[in-house]
Nucleic acid binder design. Structure first.
Length: 272
DNA sequence: ACGGATGTTCGCGC
DNA sequence: CGCGCGAACATCCG
């Protein structure tokens, strides 16, 4: 559940779960999610706390509790925060950490592949942590300044798609959003970043904004439905996951190549 | 059964 | 130093 739109959705849901509630008890299973330690701190520091603020920076969730306790959560590839009405509903599969709340609900962090990460911080502003400071501008929070993006892209000869997925360039863009934005901007993902023109960068900036907005809407008001565990899964994207299907613009088949170790769907005809 | 999947990090060779 | 590549992490799905 990883790119910016999904993490933004997770942030909204998690605010609803936690805001105004008291944490009666916190637990964490011994897993890689707490690599670097912090599993015990999660349990001891969160008991008796209330959430004060929950923000998102790129793909990170920043939870600030009273008493100066902060939790940083990255969902990795398959992490999600879910709410269960009560204990009797049982523990969901792959629950790695749990918050028992004063309304009888339990909020679980579930993560089958354990690529996600949770760290606990006392008396520290979360947005001053090195991993947060390293992030580039967040498209939703800060917007995308085409000039700043052009400068960042000019510093590397890597394929523009790989550069867009660099979290120091823009925070929150992953394989889906980079793929979709480059299609919308009609720029080939293979283009060396430093050879993308000013005009194209402007198109890319707008395309990222549009793609994120579109994906957030596709999520619907309540649940993200695409790529979900549900019965019928509809792919809402223009080219991502559509290899061999007709390009929505020119009807020629969508092509997939590998860039930076990730699949990159694109239209070889429309994207230059 | 094999291969790929929304992410990040590391090591290696050039 | 920059860059490409492959591997690693652990599990599911087609």
């Amino acid at each position: 559940m990883p790119e910016l739109p999904e993490v933004e959705h997770a942030a909204r849901m998690l605010r609803g779960f936690l805001m105004g509630r008291l944490i009666l008890r916190a637990e964490a299973s011994p897993t890689r999610v707490f690599r670097g330690g912090g599993r015990r701190a999660f349990a001891s520091a969160l008991r008796g706390r209330k959430l004060e603020r929950l923000e998102r920076r790129g793909k990170y969730l920043l939870l600030s509790f009273d008493g100066g306790v902060g939790v940083l959560s990255h969902l990795g590839m398959t992490g999600k925060w879910i709410r269960r009405e009560g204990q009797r509903e049982g523990r969901p599969l792959y629950s790695r950490a749990r918050l028992m709340l004063d309304d009888g609900s339990v909020v679980h962090y579930c993560d089958p592949r354990l690529f996600g990460r949770i760290t606990v911080h006392r008396g520290a502003e979360l947005d001053r942590l090195p991993e947060i400071r390293a992030l580039g501008p967040d498209p939703l929070r800060d917007g995308i300044d085409p000039r700043a993006l052009a400068e960042a892209l000019a510093r590397t000869s890597r394929p523009v798609k790989v550069a867009l997925m660099d979290q120091r360039v823009i925070a929150g863009v992953g394989n889906i959003q980079a793929t979709e934005a480059l299609f919308r901007a009609r720029v080939a993902p293979t283009r060396p970043a430093n050879r993308v023109t000013t005009r194209e960068v402007a198109r890319i900036a707008e395309a990222i904004r549009a793609s994120i907005a579109f994906t957030l809407e596709a999520a619907g008001p309540d649940e993200i439905t695409y790529l979900s565990e549900g019965a019928r899964v509809v792919n809402p994207f223009l080219v991502y996951g559509r290899e061999g299907l007709p390009c929505p613009r020119c009807r020629r088949p969508i092509d997939t190549i590998s860039l930076g170790g990730r699949s990159s769907a694109h239209c070889a005809s429309c994207q230059r």
